[in-house]
Design a protein around this nucleic acid. Sequence first.
DNA 1: AATGAATGAGCCTTCATTCAT
DNA 2: TATGAATGAAGGCTCATTCAT
Lengths: 190, 190, 190, 190
Amino acid sequence: MSDKAAKKRQFILDTAKTVFAEKGFKSVTMKDIVEACEISRGGLYIYFDSTEAIFSEILRDEAAKQSWNLAGGSAGDRLAFFLNEQKKSILSSDKGLSVALYEYMFYKHEGNLSCDDINDAFKAGVAAVEAIVKEGVDSGEFYADDIHSAALNIVYLLEGLRLAAGTVGVSERDIDGQLVYILGGLIAEE
Amino acid sequence: MSDKAAKKRQFILDTAKTVFAEKGFKSVTMKDIVEACEISRGGLYIYFDSTEAIFSEILRDEAAKQSWNLAGGSAGDRLAFFLNEQKKSILSSDKGLSVALYEYMFYKHEGNLSCDDINDAFKAGVAAVEAIVKEGVDSGEFYADDIHSAALNIVYLLEGLRLAAGTVGVSERDIDGQLVYILGGLIAEE
Amino acid sequence: MSDKAAKKRQFILDTAKTVFAEKGFKSVTMKDIVEACEISRGGLYIYFDSTEAIFSEILRDEAAKQSWNLAGGSAGDRLAFFLNEQKKSILSSDKGLSVALYEYMFYKHEGNLSCDDINDAFKAGVAAVEAIVKEGVDSGEFYADDIHSAALNIVYLLEGLRLAAGTVGVSERDIDGQLVYILGGLIAEE
Amino acid sequence: MSDKAAKKRQFILDTAKTVFAEKGFKSVTMKDIVEACEISRGGLYIYFDSTEAIFSEILRDEAAKQSWNLAGGSAGDRLAFFLNEQKKSILSSDKGLSVALYEYMFYKHEGNLSCDDINDAFKAGVAAVEAIVKEGVDSGEFYADDIHSAALNIVYLLEGLRLAAGTVGVSERDIDGQLVYILGGLIAEE
DNA sequence: AATGAATGAGCCTTCATTCAT
DNA sequence: TATGAATGAAGGCTCATTCAT
């Protein structure tokens, strides 16, 4: 049973994810999810108490899937790979979930609710980028006065791009231009 | 009469602005605004049909206040001034409105509604920054391979910072670090 | 001034009449009339307290215009003339007011409100028809066992036609068929 | 469950019918029905979306109950039976629903909404009467120049009576007088 | 007289949440 | 566990009516 229950739980999460990707966070109601999952109103409450609980768990799932330190290779290769992944994610339809994510963050922030998962994820992201940059600096591939600022710069820039993608829209060329800029900033200066 | 009406209209806008700053965009109801303004339900409808209409007008007001091409001086001075203004705005309590703004943009975006005011404002921002950068490059103060990308870089970075300020939070030091980074990128390379 | 006021009052009645013709009785709001007349909300209340008061006065006006005993001629001529007038009224756009009239009657009836004007008008109509029929019978033009029933028959039939015109619709042929039927009933039997 | 739901649905229809009979169509609000049924506001919406939907279904129910071609016997018997049924219906408290019906028809008509059910019912009524008349004419019981007009005459007259019953009121004697008139018109002329 | 802003009551509709089955 | 009917709170909107100017 616990097995079956786990499967149903996962089914709900997967289905709800598509709903959040489509409608953002705040607009999604328990009813929307009930309808998308084609289960009963009461049935959903057995597993989750609120859209917030569902989204929070979806985030946990997503975070678990993340692997910052993918592959091996030189720092340059790894950074290039990372940036390419980010580019794909910014352009992809999964962008939808990022809009929901922003709404979720605002929602938590407005309520002055702690949002440690998000904060932690952000810090983890910064740390991962910082690690790559540091490695590159150590190996002489990159140049940076202040490694922390360099990493933050990359992360903030990517957030800015992602946000723009969800609102005013960005072209692939715009993204490429910025990625070149990032790499240039780390490499060009001898 | 029209004078009095204009005053009340402005009063509503001003009051609503504080509500949006506090609660974002989506969570704000006509009732919230009615209560904040201490007017009657029907009274509000005399002036505005929806929270969207109110917020849209607030945005117009804000945009009108914007003056990108402030002061004179060298390109460097002007950029420094601009960045300092941005820094203040990112750190200030007006930050609240920016969260509402993001929600508003997502709201429009989800509904596939045109949001020309926002798009125009974004483009205007990019153009203004680009103008300063170009001026600096022309005068030899700045160096940039691709002026457009350089301007976009600044704008995206500031958006990323502003977003972070509204969610995970940013310290003044973080902002300063990034501003230095921007200036460094434009100046350092000879 | 009283002259000017009387003119305005009449203007309101005339304008409101077109509104009632278009929307019936119950759907018409004071706001509708205010807008149609392009006067102020408060201004309307100076003259009338409710849509009911306005409609009631319109009815009085209409009743005053009615002249059942028009023209002279034989009973047959006068009946033919009367029926032709009814036919025109049933087919005309003034039909709109008749729908409003029905709604008004129902409205009064539901509230168990006296509606003497209507009742009186109905009785007056019956009496007028009855007078013509009686005249025809006396002169030998018509034949009728029961003059009152004959008159009621004509009135009810016309009401049925008018009602149908406002709902399921009637063709001119249908009306003609019924008028022939009426005349036939009075004349054919010797 | 579906059984219980069907019962509740029917309960709502039955209760709403009394409300419509009392207040007509347009004045009835969802709130009225909610209160009459002693259920919750939201509860009603589970079954019906609007007063129109409820009334429409009530009409369907009523139409299903109708049996035009009742009993056997001669055309004269059948017509007499039919007319007697109509008389009872005109005099009965079910009259209330007929006022609502008229309002409903006007409502649909004003909105230029198709109201096929009503039109069909009207045509079916005419056809049924026409069939009886034709049968009588064929068997020599009745006499009529134009069978269609004769049938329409009966139907329009009954509508006129029903309408009058809902507004100015009719006495049983008035109705009897008219029924005699109808029968006389069909029979007397040899 | 006339204006039109303001009020507040009233109806509509949608959901989160509960609960008997 | 699962269902889905039921509830009631919440927010949206429209008008009749009043009132200061």
